[in-house]
Computed example of a mutant assay.
Amino acid sequence: MKPIKKAVFPVAGMGTRFLPATKVMPKELFPVVDRPLLQYAVDEALEAGIEQMIFVNGRGKGMIEDHFDMAFELQRNMGDRGKDQSILDGTRLKPGNAVFVRQQEPLGLGHAIWCARDIIGDEPFAIFLPDEFMVGEPGCMKQMVDAYESLGGNVVCALEIPMEDTSSYGVIDPGKQEGPITEVKGLVEKPAAGTAPSNLILPGRYILQPEVMRILETQEAGAGGEIQLTDAMAQMIGQQPFHGMTFDGKRYDCGSKQGYVEANLALALAHPEIGEDIRKIAGDLLAGS
Protein backbone atom coordinates (compact mmCIF):
# COMPACT_ATOMS: atom_id res chain seq x y z
CA MET A 1 0.00 0.00 0.00
CA LYS A 2 1.55 3.25 -1.14
CA PRO A 3 1.67 6.19 1.30
CA ILE A 4 -0.19 9.45 0.62
CA LYS A 5 2.44 11.96 -0.47
CA LYS A 6 0.49 14.14 -2.95
CA ALA A 7 -2.54 16.37 -2.52
CA VAL A 8 -4.71 18.23 -5.01
CA PHE A 9 -6.23 21.60 -4.14
CA PRO A 10 -8.89 22.72 -6.67
CA VAL A 11 -8.70 26.52 -6.42
CA ALA A 12 -9.89 27.70 -9.85
CA GLY A 13 -13.35 28.85 -8.76
CA MET A 14 -14.36 32.48 -9.26
CA GLY A 15 -15.77 32.97 -5.76
CA THR A 16 -18.88 34.76 -6.99
CA ARG A 17 -20.64 34.41 -3.61
CA PHE A 18 -18.11 36.86 -2.17
CA LEU A 19 -18.10 39.50 -4.91
CA PRO A 20 -16.91 42.22 -5.02
CA ALA A 21 -14.26 41.05 -2.49
CA THR A 22 -13.14 38.34 -4.93
CA LYS A 23 -12.88 40.62 -7.96
CA VAL A 24 -9.09 40.67 -7.50
CA MET A 25 -8.31 38.54 -4.45
CA PRO A 26 -8.92 34.76 -4.57
CA LYS A 27 -11.33 33.63 -1.87
CA GLU A 28 -8.82 30.91 -0.92
CA LEU A 29 -6.56 33.66 0.41
CA PHE A 30 -9.21 35.30 2.58
CA PRO A 31 -7.78 35.41 6.12
CA VAL A 32 -9.21 33.50 9.03
CA VAL A 33 -7.87 35.73 11.79
CA ASP A 34 -4.25 35.94 10.62
CA ARG A 35 -3.68 33.15 8.07
CA PRO A 36 -5.19 32.56 4.62
CA LEU A 37 -7.86 29.88 4.39
CA LEU A 38 -5.70 27.92 1.93
CA GLN A 39 -2.73 28.03 4.30
CA TYR A 40 -4.74 26.17 6.92
CA ALA A 41 -5.46 23.41 4.37
CA VAL A 42 -1.79 23.17 3.37
CA ASP A 43 -0.74 22.99 7.02
CA GLU A 44 -3.29 20.21 7.52
CA ALA A 45 -1.72 18.34 4.60
CA LEU A 46 1.80 18.78 5.96
CA GLU A 47 0.71 17.48 9.37
CA ALA A 48 -0.58 14.34 7.62
CA GLY A 49 2.81 13.67 6.01
CA ILE A 50 1.89 14.95 2.54
CA GLU A 51 4.81 16.48 0.69
CA GLN A 52 3.69 17.70 -2.74
CA MET A 53 0.86 20.24 -3.07
CA ILE A 54 -0.81 20.44 -6.48
CA PHE A 55 -2.89 23.58 -6.98
CA VAL A 56 -5.39 23.46 -9.85
CA ASN A 57 -5.97 27.14 -10.48
CA GLY A 58 -7.45 29.44 -13.12
CA ARG A 59 -7.05 32.89 -14.58
CA GLY A 60 -6.59 35.65 -12.03
CA LYS A 61 -5.27 33.32 -9.33
CA GLY A 62 -1.61 34.40 -9.49
CA MET A 63 -1.72 35.56 -5.87
CA ILE A 64 -1.91 31.93 -4.76
CA GLU A 65 1.35 31.13 -6.51
CA ASP A 66 2.94 34.25 -5.01
CA HIS A 67 1.82 33.27 -1.52
CA PHE A 68 3.78 30.01 -1.68
CA ASP A 69 6.85 31.65 -3.23
CA MET A 70 9.81 33.31 -1.56
CA ALA A 71 9.21 36.94 -0.54
CA PHE A 72 12.79 38.19 -0.63
CA GLU A 73 12.17 41.87 0.18
CA LEU A 74 9.80 41.07 3.03
CA GLN A 75 12.19 38.51 4.53
CA ARG A 76 15.16 40.85 4.19
CA ASN A 77 13.27 43.69 5.87
CA MET A 78 12.15 41.41 8.68
CA GLY A 79 15.71 40.14 9.14
CA ASP A 80 17.15 43.65 9.16
CA ARG A 81 14.70 44.64 11.87
CA GLY A 82 15.32 41.55 13.95
CA LYS A 83 11.80 40.19 13.48
CA ASP A 84 11.04 36.47 13.65
CA GLN A 85 10.72 35.07 10.13
CA SER A 86 9.46 31.66 11.26
CA ILE A 87 5.89 32.90 10.84
CA LEU A 88 6.47 32.47 7.09
CA ASP A 89 7.73 28.88 7.31
CA GLY A 90 4.48 27.25 6.21
CA THR A 91 4.34 29.43 3.11
CA ARG A 92 7.73 28.24 1.83
CA LEU A 93 7.30 24.73 0.53
CA LYS A 94 10.37 22.77 -0.52
CA PRO A 95 11.54 23.22 -4.14
CA GLY A 96 9.29 21.23 -6.46
CA ASN A 97 6.66 20.63 -3.78
CA ALA A 98 4.33 23.40 -4.97
CA VAL A 99 2.94 22.55 -8.40
CA PHE A 100 0.47 24.71 -10.33
CA VAL A 101 -1.85 23.42 -13.04
CA ARG A 102 -4.34 25.50 -15.03
CA GLN A 103 -7.98 24.46 -15.35
CA GLN A 104 -8.88 26.34 -18.50
CA GLU A 105 -12.65 25.85 -18.32
CA PRO A 106 -14.96 25.64 -15.26
CA LEU A 107 -16.29 22.16 -16.05
CA GLY A 108 -16.71 20.92 -12.48
CA LEU A 109 -14.79 19.46 -9.55
CA GLY A 110 -14.19 16.16 -11.32
CA HIS A 111 -12.62 17.96 -14.25
CA ALA A 112 -10.43 20.04 -11.93
CA ILE A 113 -9.07 16.89 -10.28
CA TRP A 114 -8.51 15.26 -13.69
CA CYS A 115 -6.33 18.22 -14.70
CA ALA A 116 -3.73 16.95 -12.19
CA ARG A 117 -3.62 13.41 -13.65
CA ASP A 118 -0.08 13.56 -15.06
CA ILE A 119 1.37 14.74 -11.75
CA ILE A 120 -0.54 12.14 -9.74
CA GLY A 121 0.56 9.31 -12.03
CA ASP A 122 -0.09 5.91 -10.44
CA GLU A 123 -0.06 7.07 -6.81
CA PRO A 124 -2.94 7.41 -4.34
CA PHE A 125 -3.58 11.03 -3.44
CA ALA A 126 -5.53 13.36 -1.20
CA ILE A 127 -7.97 16.10 -2.19
CA PHE A 128 -8.66 19.23 -0.16
CA LEU A 129 -11.52 21.64 -0.81
CA PRO A 130 -10.16 24.73 0.99
CA ASP A 131 -13.64 26.25 1.42
CA GLU A 132 -14.27 23.47 3.89
CA PHE A 133 -12.30 24.59 6.93
CA MET A 134 -11.72 21.63 9.24
CA VAL A 135 -10.44 22.24 12.77
CA GLY A 136 -9.38 19.33 14.98
CA GLU A 137 -6.56 17.71 16.94
CA PRO A 138 -5.10 15.96 15.06
CA GLY A 139 -6.22 17.52 11.80
CA CYS A 140 -8.85 15.95 9.58
CA MET A 141 -6.43 14.60 6.97
CA LYS A 142 -4.15 13.11 9.63
CA GLN A 143 -7.17 11.24 11.00
CA MET A 144 -7.98 10.07 7.47
CA VAL A 145 -4.43 8.95 6.70
CA ASP A 146 -4.38 6.93 9.93
CA ALA A 147 -7.63 5.26 8.84
CA TYR A 148 -6.27 4.68 5.32
CA GLU A 149 -3.20 2.91 6.68
CA SER A 150 -5.53 0.38 8.30
CA LEU A 151 -8.21 0.14 5.61
CA GLY A 152 -6.45 0.81 2.31
CA GLY A 153 -8.45 1.66 -0.79
CA ASN A 154 -10.41 4.90 -0.76
CA VAL A 155 -11.31 6.94 2.31
CA VAL A 156 -13.58 9.98 2.30
CA CYS A 157 -14.38 12.31 5.15
CA ALA A 158 -17.96 11.95 6.41
CA LEU A 159 -20.03 14.44 8.34
CA GLU A 160 -23.54 14.25 9.79
CA ILE A 161 -25.86 17.14 8.94
CA PRO A 162 -29.64 17.68 9.16
CA MET A 163 -31.43 15.54 6.58
CA GLU A 164 -33.17 18.59 5.11
CA ASP A 165 -29.79 20.05 4.08
CA THR A 166 -28.47 17.03 2.17
CA SER A 167 -29.65 18.21 -1.26
CA SER A 168 -26.65 20.55 -1.46
CA TYR A 169 -23.97 17.86 -1.01
CA GLY A 170 -22.63 14.50 -2.08
CA VAL A 171 -24.26 11.94 0.23
CA ILE A 172 -23.09 8.49 1.39
CA ASP A 173 -25.27 5.40 1.05
CA PRO A 174 -23.97 3.67 4.20
CA GLY A 175 -23.25 0.03 4.89
CA LYS A 176 -21.67 -1.49 7.99
CA GLN A 177 -20.57 1.01 10.64
CA GLU A 178 -17.85 0.51 13.23
CA GLY A 179 -16.98 3.52 15.36
CA PRO A 180 -16.10 6.45 13.09
CA ILE A 181 -15.72 4.18 10.04
CA THR A 182 -18.65 3.59 7.68
CA GLU A 183 -18.63 1.25 4.70
CA VAL A 184 -19.66 3.19 1.59
CA LYS A 185 -22.15 1.24 -0.52
CA GLY A 186 -22.93 4.13 -2.84
CA LEU A 187 -22.68 7.89 -3.38
CA VAL A 188 -25.33 10.32 -4.58
CA GLU A 189 -24.53 13.85 -5.72
CA LYS A 190 -27.04 16.48 -4.54
CA PRO A 191 -30.05 14.18 -4.13
CA ALA A 192 -33.52 15.64 -4.53
CA ALA A 193 -35.24 16.60 -1.27
CA GLY A 194 -36.46 13.53 0.61
CA THR A 195 -34.42 11.02 -1.43
CA ALA A 196 -31.02 11.09 0.33
CA PRO A 197 -29.87 7.62 1.49
CA SER A 198 -28.47 9.08 4.74
CA ASN A 199 -27.46 12.33 6.38
CA LEU A 200 -23.74 11.58 5.96
CA ILE A 201 -22.24 14.06 3.51
CA LEU A 202 -18.82 14.50 1.92
CA PRO A 203 -17.36 17.70 3.41
CA GLY A 204 -14.36 18.15 1.15
CA ARG A 205 -11.58 15.74 2.16
CA TYR A 206 -10.75 12.62 0.16
CA ILE A 207 -8.07 9.94 -0.21
CA LEU A 208 -8.47 8.26 -3.60
CA GLN A 209 -6.70 5.66 -5.68
CA PRO A 210 -5.33 6.80 -9.08
CA GLU A 211 -7.90 4.72 -10.98
CA VAL A 212 -10.36 7.57 -10.44
CA MET A 213 -8.44 9.57 -13.03
CA ARG A 214 -9.14 6.99 -15.72
CA ILE A 215 -12.84 7.14 -14.90
CA LEU A 216 -12.81 10.93 -15.04
CA GLU A 217 -11.19 10.71 -18.48
CA THR A 218 -14.57 9.76 -19.99
CA GLN A 219 -16.90 11.01 -17.25
CA GLU A 220 -20.04 12.69 -18.57
CA ALA A 221 -21.58 15.78 -17.00
CA GLY A 222 -23.80 15.12 -14.00
CA ALA A 223 -25.61 17.33 -11.49
CA GLY A 224 -25.51 20.99 -12.46
CA GLY A 225 -24.20 20.13 -15.92
CA GLU A 226 -20.70 19.63 -14.48
CA ILE A 227 -18.28 16.69 -14.33
CA GLN A 228 -18.84 15.48 -10.79
CA LEU A 229 -16.13 13.79 -8.73
CA THR A 230 -18.84 11.99 -6.75
CA ASP A 231 -20.09 10.22 -9.90
CA ALA A 232 -16.58 8.95 -10.68
CA MET A 233 -16.01 7.75 -7.12
CA ALA A 234 -19.33 5.89 -7.19
CA GLN A 235 -18.02 3.75 -10.06
CA MET A 236 -15.10 2.61 -7.89
CA ILE A 237 -17.34 1.22 -5.15
CA GLY A 238 -17.30 -2.56 -5.30
CA GLN A 239 -14.06 -2.53 -7.26
CA GLN A 240 -11.89 -1.29 -4.36
CA PRO A 241 -12.36 -0.85 -0.60
CA PHE A 242 -14.35 2.35 0.04
CA HIS A 243 -15.00 3.84 3.48
CA GLY A 244 -16.14 7.04 5.10
CA MET A 245 -14.47 8.38 8.24
CA THR A 246 -16.51 10.63 10.49
CA PHE A 247 -14.30 13.58 11.39
CA ASP A 248 -13.65 14.22 15.08
CA GLY A 249 -13.55 18.00 15.04
CA LYS A 250 -15.37 21.10 13.84
CA ARG A 251 -16.18 22.01 10.25
CA TYR A 252 -16.82 25.54 9.00
CA ASP A 253 -18.37 26.05 5.57
CA CYS A 254 -16.29 29.02 4.42
CA GLY A 255 -17.93 28.88 1.01
CA SER A 256 -20.78 30.81 2.65
CA LYS A 257 -20.58 34.22 4.25
CA GLN A 258 -22.13 32.94 7.47
CA GLY A 259 -19.66 30.07 7.75
CA TYR A 260 -16.71 32.33 7.00
CA VAL A 261 -17.71 34.82 9.70
CA GLU A 262 -18.33 31.94 12.14
CA ALA A 263 -14.84 30.54 11.50
CA ASN A 264 -13.21 33.91 12.11
CA LEU A 265 -15.14 34.45 15.32
CA ALA A 266 -14.46 30.93 16.63
CA LEU A 267 -10.71 31.08 15.97
CA ALA A 268 -10.44 34.65 17.25
CA LEU A 269 -12.09 33.63 20.54
CA ALA A 270 -9.63 30.74 20.85
CA HIS A 271 -6.59 32.85 19.92
CA PRO A 272 -4.12 33.10 22.84
CA GLU A 273 -3.25 36.74 22.12
CA ILE A 274 -6.59 38.32 21.26
CA GLY A 275 -9.18 35.86 22.57
CA GLU A 276 -10.09 37.78 25.73
CA ASP A 277 -10.37 41.08 23.87
CA ILE A 278 -12.57 39.53 21.17
CA ARG A 279 -14.83 37.99 23.80
CA LYS A 280 -15.32 41.42 25.39
CA ILE A 281 -15.91 43.06 22.01
CA ALA A 282 -18.46 40.40 21.03
CA GLY A 283 -20.19 40.75 24.39
CA ASP A 284 -20.41 44.54 24.06
CA LEU A 285 -21.81 44.25 20.54
CA LEU A 286 -24.43 41.71 21.59
CA ALA A 287 -25.39 43.79 24.63
CA GLY A 288 -25.98 46.81 22.41
CA SER A 289 -27.96 44.97 19.75
Rank of each mutant, 00 (worst) to 15 (best):
residue 79 G to K: 12
residue 81 R to Y: 01
residue 81 R to C: 04
residue 82 G to P: 14
residue 82 G to C: 10
residue 84 D to K: 08
residue 87 I to K: 08
residue 87 I to P: 03
residue 90 G to K: 10
residue 91 T to S: 13
residue 92 R to D: 04
residue 92 R to I: 02
residue 93 L to G: 04
residue 94 K to E: 10
residue 95 P to N: 08
residue 99 V to L: 08
residue 99 V to S: 07
residue 99 V to D: 07
residue 99 V to W: 00
residue 99 V to F: 00
residue 101 V to Y: 03
residue 103 Q to N: 02
residue 104 Q to T: 13
residue 104 Q to N: 13
residue 105 E to G: 05
residue 106 P to T: 08
residue 106 P to E: 09
residue 107 L to S: 02
residue 108 G to W: 01
residue 109 L to Q: 08
residue 109 L to T: 08
residue 110 G to V: 03
residue 111 H to C: 14
residue 111 H to W: 14
residue 112 A to Y: 03
residue 112 A to L: 00
residue 113 I to E: 04
residue 114 W to V: 03
residue 115 C to K: 14
residue 115 C to I: 06
residue 116 A to S: 15
residue 118 D to H: 11
residue 118 D to Y: 09
residue 120 I to Y: 10
residue 121 G to W: 02
residue 121 G to V: 05
residue 122 D to H: 12
residue 122 D to K: 12
residue 123 E to A: 15
residue 125 F to H: 11
residue 130 P to S: 09
residue 130 P to D: 05
residue 130 P to I: 06
residue 132 E to Q: 15
residue 132 E to I: 05
residue 133 F to D: 01
residue 135 V to I: 10
residue 135 V to G: 07
residue 136 G to C: 02
residue 136 G to K: 02
residue 138 P to K: 07
residue 138 P to H: 01
residue 139 G to P: 00
residue 141 M to R: 04
residue 141 M to K: 07
residue 142 K to I: 08
residue 142 K to A: 12
residue 144 M to H: 04
residue 144 M to F: 03
residue 145 V to Q: 02
residue 147 A to M: 14
residue 149 E to D: 15
residue 149 E to H: 15
residue 151 L to Q: 06
residue 152 G to I: 11
residue 153 G to S: 00
residue 155 V to I: 11
residue 156 V to H: 01
residue 157 C to Q: 13
residue 157 C to P: 02
residue 157 C to K: 12
residue 160 E to T: 09
residue 163 M to D: 10
residue 163 M to V: 15
residue 164 E to C: 10
residue 164 E to V: 05
residue 165 D to P: 12
residue 166 T to Y: 09
residue 169 Y to W: 10
residue 169 Y to N: 07
residue 171 V to P: 12
residue 172 I to F: 12
residue 173 D to W: 03
residue 174 P to E: 04
residue 174 P to C: 09
residue 175 G to T: 07
residue 175 G to K: 08
residue 175 G to P: 05
residue 175 G to M: 05
residue 176 K to F: 07
residue 176 K to T: 11
residue 177 Q to S: 14
residue 177 Q to R: 13
residue 177 Q to C: 15
residue 181 I to A: 04
residue 181 I to P: 04
residue 185 K to P: 00
residue 185 K to L: 10
residue 186 G to A: 11
residue 186 G to H: 05
residue 186 G to D: 07
residue 186 G to Y: 01
residue 187 L to Y: 04
residue 188 V to G: 07
residue 189 E to D: 13
residue 190 K to I: 12
residue 191 P to N: 15
residue 191 P to Y: 15
residue 192 A to C: 12
residue 193 A to T: 11
residue 193 A to P: 13
residue 194 G to D: 14
residue 195 T to F: 14
residue 195 T to W: 03
residue 198 S to N: 12
residue 199 N to A: 05
residue 200 L to T: 06
residue 201 I to E: 06
residue 201 I to A: 09
residue 202 L to M: 01
residue 202 L to T: 00
residue 206 Y to G: 06
residue 206 Y to L: 01
residue 207 I to C: 03
residue 207 I to F: 03
residue 208 L to D: 06
residue 209 Q to L: 13
